[in-house]
């Protein structure tokens, strides 16, 4: 256990809770102030020589929402990701980037056990969430998914009314309070309320693509999750709608931990606080290459492959 920086980080975590500055103080400024000095202080720590993942220091004292330890995922006999160890900082946006087929989405789907739904899918390793291992079969996947919400690549509102779309999750999770307030609050949070407040009975499918995706975000936050996973949430949207979603992500990051998979480098740079770069080798197994504050990754990558990818030398 003592072999990597997790130990260091974990030991510092409890104290950091108190020391952490109030979330509102750093609303839309992703790079922490001491960013520039970081590379000199924390040149990457190599975990396991075989994995060759490079890590930057986190540069801020922060609590972790999730900690992935040597997570591997398989589809039948095919291994999609191999032994990925990664912290997910709380109330920050963490981006997973990498070329197609590097296992970003697979890794993301491990985090709320959506992979359980795929026949033959299997996850090994440990995902630490509030002192429990998410992957442990005794942990209820349904409970995990309630607390770790998800927004998908293609907007997928239910073919029901806007109201029902938002209310569904709360209803099935035993919420018995003022549903109208809850729906309104969730839609406000998703910056959709003003556009739809007069037509809550309209079908969710009747909205535009960008609105649909925001409805899906409203649906996800209506169950009050702690973490929201987003799987390329803007890839099916036009630039204007994409911008809205990105703004929304920054806003939501004040209160929620967000993990976002994206193809779009600029997007990762704009919205994320931390970035993990994944890459699949010859055998198409995804591995973590580098993880650190977004600014660091983009300006000072420690791994040649990261630099190649960021500068566009990978396909």
């Amino acid at each position: 256990m003592a072999r990597n920086f997790f130990t260091v980080m974990r030991s510092s975590a409890p104290s950091s809770t108190a020391a952490r500055p109030s979330s509102s103080s750093r609303s839309t400024a992703p790079p922490p102030p001491n960013m520039k000095e970081a590379p000199a202080a924390g040149v990457g720590v190599h975990l396991d020589p075989s994995l060759e993942a490079v890590r930057h220091d986190l540069t801020e004292d922060i609590e972790m929402a999730l900690e992935l330890r040597e997570v591997s995922a398989f589809y039948g006999t095919f291994q999609a990701v191999d032994k990925i160890s990664l912290p997910i900082p709380k109330n920050r946006v963490t981006a997973l980037i990498g070329p197609s087929g590097c296992g970003k989405s697979t890794l993301l789907r491990c985090l709320n056990r959506m992979n359980d739904l795929i026949p033959g899918a299997r996850v090994e390793g440990e995902i630490r969430f509030e002192e429990r291992n998410l992957i442990d079969p005794t942990v209820d996947a349904v409970e995990v998914r309630r607390r770790i919400g998800m927004v998908f690549q293609k907007p997928n509102p239910f073919p029901k009314s806007i109201y029902e779309n938002v209310a569904f999750g709360a209803r099935i999770n035993g919420y018995s309070g003022d549903m109208d307030r809850l729906v309104e609050d969730a839609l406000r949070r998703a910056a959709l309320w003003d556009e739809v407040k007069d037509e809550l009975d309209k079908s969710g499918l009747a909205l535009s693509g960008g609105q649909q995706q925001r409805l899906c975000i409203a649906r996800a936050i209506a169950v009050q999750p702690e973490i929201i996973l987003m799987d390329e949430p803007a890839s099916a949207l036009d630039p204007v709608a994409t911008l809205k979603i990105e703004d929304l992500m920054r806003e939501l990051a004040e209160h929620y931990t967000i993990v976002v998979v994206t193809h779009n480098m600029q997007q990762a740079g704009r919205v994320s606080d931390y970035t993990a770069f994944l890459l699949a080798g010859e055998e198409r197994v995804g591995r973590l290459v580098e993880f650190g504050p977004t600014q660091e990754i983009f300006t000072n990558p420690l791994d040649q492959r990261t630099e190649d990818y960021i500068t566009g030398r990978y396909g």
């Binding site: 035993g174 919420y175 309070g177 406000r188 209160h255």
Partner: peptide
């Protein structure tokens, strides 16, 4: 928005059924 957010949380805290952990 923060008050909205806390309201959201409060709505849930008050109304949610207990026993949300475990494999039940």
């Amino acid at each position: 928005q923060d008050s909205v957010r806390s309201l959201l949380a409060e709505l849930w805290r008050e109304r949610l059924q207990p026993s949300r952990t475990g494999s039940g």
